[in-house]
Amino acid sequence: MIDYKKGRHPASATYPVIAGVALLLVLAGSCSNGDRKTVLPSTSPPEAPTTSTATTSVEDAVRHAYTQYWMALPQAEQSSSNERRRQLLGEYATQPLLDDVLRNIDQLHARNLTSSGHIVVHIQKVQIGGNRATVWDCQDSTNAQVKNSRTGQVTSRGTPNDHLRATLARGSDGRWRINRISPLGRC
């Protein structure tokens, strides 16, 4: 189980990814909208909420949706069916991210590239306002890589400190989904 309060996974939990920010940019495509100059939150872990249980459960739901996206992404990338990719990612992503990622997975595969390995999500801060939320993450993707699917040769490796900001929206079904991921540089 993920320790959402501390923003960490236990040592036994690993999350595969499309290796690091380099490939995240490929998969997220135009989702950054040029907002790389955003003022970053404090790098200290968030304090345990002191508000009501309802607030805590909403924050937990946001953290869960964000983390699960990173589990669904490599499963979708490895799937040979576009329908299955959309189904997997549609549980945790919505527009414009969903179509951008699906299109960019196709472009990745067209270049005979695929991913392997895992990342560790380190959620630093969560802000919730109504049906919108923002998550700041400092991912460790040092064990993630991109490789040529024909030769197996590694073409890219992840880094220990990819800083991301994700925005999420709560749908009419009550589920939180990511609609934008913005790389913020290193953390």
Rank of each mutant, 00 (worst) to 15 (best):
V21Y: 03
V21N: 11
V21M: 14
V21L: 15
A22C: 11
A22Y: 07
L23G: 04
L23N: 08
L23K: 01
L23S: 01
L24I: 06
L24F: 01
L24D: 09
V26W: 12
V26S: 12
L27I: 05
L27D: 08
A28V: 01
A28R: 00
A28E: 10
G29K: 02
S30W: 07
S30Y: 06
S32N: 01
S32H: 04
N33I: 06
N33V: 05
G34P: 02
G34I: 08
D35C: 12
D35A: 14
D35Q: 14
D35P: 01
R36I: 01
R36M: 12
K37T: 02
K37G: 05
K37Q: 10
K37N: 11
K37M: 08
T38L: 15
T38D: 04
T38H: 10
T38K: 13
V39W: 12
L40G: 00
L40T: 03
L40I: 03
P41Y: 14
P41H: 13
S42V: 03
S42T: 09
T43Q: 13
T43Y: 14
T43S: 11
T43D: 13
T43M: 15
T43G: 12
S44Q: 12
S44I: 08
S44N: 07
P45I: 07
P45C: 03
P45N: 06
P45W: 09
P45D: 02
P46R: 15
P46K: 10
P46H: 09
P46S: 02
P46A: 10
E47V: 04
E47G: 12
E47M: 10
A48N: 07
A48M: 07
A48S: 05
P49V: 03
P49Y: 03
T50P: 03
T50H: 09
T50E: 01
T51K: 15
T51L: 00
S52M: 02
S52T: 01
T53F: 03
T53S: 04
T53D: 00
T53V: 01
T53L: 11
A54W: 07
A54L: 08
A54V: 04
A54H: 09
T55N: 10
T55D: 08
T55R: 13
T55G: 02
T55V: 06
T56N: 05
T56F: 04
T56G: 07
